[in-house]
């Protein structure tokens, strides 16, 4: 019968209107992201052996590492910078890291105001997030 489809549609929307809503109230309720989510990269400077594997794996030359020779001829990480504006968040760098120093984190609130803030100093960030961790 003509009009049957129309009424079915009305029925469906009415059912949904009366049913529960499924919104996640984001800033109040933080989403529970699975541990594999690549929201940003985090570095554990102590574990890093400055092998440069991550920088080589990156398709977009996001990572620049400088290191210097420390005692017993071991490389010591001096600076670790990520130009996140160019990052694809593909995770190839974390896969390449042999020690697990570079890892994905679920911290997704990366919005910033200035373009310069897109240049992450990973060692500094690691210090900050550790500070936060202790407070919490």
């Amino acid at each position: 019968m003509f009009g049957k489809g129309l009424f079915t549609g009305l029925g469906i929307t009415l059912k949904r209107m009366l049913g529960p809503n499924i919104t996640e109230f984001y800033p109040e309720e933080m989403p529970n992201l699975p541990p594999r989510t690549r929201s940003s990269m985090g570095l554990d400077p102590e574990k890093c052996i400055s092998c440069n594997m991550c920088a080589n794996a990156c398709p977009n030359k996001v990572i620049t590492i400088t290191s210097e020779k420390g005692e017993s001829n071991k490389k010591v990480l001096k600076s670790y910078r990520m130009d996140v504006g160019r990052c694809l968040f593909c995770g190839l760098c974390t896969e390449a890291c042999p020690t697990g120093a570079l890892h994905v984190t679920q911290q997704f609130e990366n919005a910033i105001y200035e373009a310069d803030e897109l240049k992450w100093d990973m060692i500094e960030r690691a210090g900050k997030s550790r500070g936060r961790g202790e407070q919490a």
């Binding site: 003509f2 009009g3 049957k4 489809g5 129309l6 079915t8 549609g9 029925g11 469906i12 929307t13």
Partner: peptide, 14 residues
């Protein structure tokens, strides 16, 4: 079924 009800089965869509 729901997509059919709200979209495909709608006479206006057809």
């Amino acid at each position: 079924e729901e997509y059919f009800g709200i979209f495909y089965g709608n006479e206006i869509v057809m």
